[in-house]
């Protein structure tokens, strides 16, 4: 009977930044079309653990629930991904326990919510924008080929979700590697006809310490990117450009 079907969650909880974590289990009634988010929403309505103890609802971050905002990223059954598109029937067809953990490469705010401020700071560092003269009317933008659009659009779908940083072995407490997401933005803006005019500044930002050289070519990033952004291509492309720039700078000395 569908009505008796249960969803079992095992959640790694943490009451606040810097505190130690602990596990809690939950058992919820199954519903059609259920995803991890709707399971967590059920806990809000009835905050009880599997053994019936009263608890606080699990804290997590979510906005769009359709995998375009990047908010609800967490580690589900050991794999980093968005929890909105994590469908219960696919994860646990036989009612298996699903484990939820916060990402490990960012400081925990509470439970499954982490602070990804560093990713936004990195967008500043690599100047991920067009140097606009102003928002007044200046007529049409530069013409672009369909080919260029088809190359840049997929790069531009990065949601700053953090999956690639979570999966990258080079992003760790003892390294300051900027990670694939920001490097991909360098490629994106350097491909734009006006963005190109400031390509050097962006390349400088990922040259040297913590820059593109930090990539260890593990290729985990493309494996986990929910938008299938060709991150490895982006890293190699930016790597080639920084090498050229370095050599050029050396020759001009």
């Amino acid at each position: 009977m569908a009505q008796d079907k249960k969803v079992r969650l095992k959640v790694q909880r943490q009451d606040g930044p810097g505190l130690s974590s602990y596990w809690q289990e939950f058992e919820l009634p199954w519903q059609p079309h259920m995803n991890v988010i709707s399971a967590l929403m059920e806990i809000q309505k009835r905050p009880l653990t599997a053994d019936g103890k009263k608890t606080t609802p699990v804290v997590w971050e979510s906005v769009c629930l359709e995998e375009v905002c990047g908010s609800c990223t967490m580690v589900i059954n050991g794999r980093v991904r968005q929890s909105c598109s994590a469908m219960i029937d696919q994860l646990a067809p036989g009612g298996e326990t699903i484990t939820l953990q916060p990402m490990t490469k960012f400081p925990v705010v509470r439970d499954l919510m982490v602070d990804r401020a560093r990713m936004f700071a990195d967008l500043k560092r690599v100047k991920a924008w067009i140097q606009l003269d102003g928002s007044h009317e200046l007529g049409a933008g530069p013409r672009q080929s369909q080919d260029n659009q088809e190359t840049t659009y997929p790069l531009s779908r990065c949601m700053t979700c953090g999956c690639c940083l979570e999966a990258c072995p080079q992003v760790n407490p003892s390294s300051d590697f900027v990670g694939p997401a920001a490097i991909n933005q360098v490629r994106l803006f350097n491909l734009h006809p006006s963005g190109q005019m400031h390509a050097g500044e962006r390349l400088d930002a990922v040259m040297g310490e913590g820059g593109v050289e930090g990539c260890g070519k593990a290729q985990n990033c493309v494996e986990v990117c929910p938008k299938e952004i060709p991150l490895v291509d982006s890293i190699s492309s930016v790597g080639r450009d920084t090498t050229k720039r370095m050599l050029l700078g050396w020759l001009l000395k």
Partner: peptide, 22 residues
Amino acid sequence: PGIVFLLDRMGVPFNRTPEGLL
């Protein structure tokens, strides 16, 4: 029209015609 041109200048990867127009 001015707004769409502005967004194009900001780098929005709008789909293109064969001539490279929006």
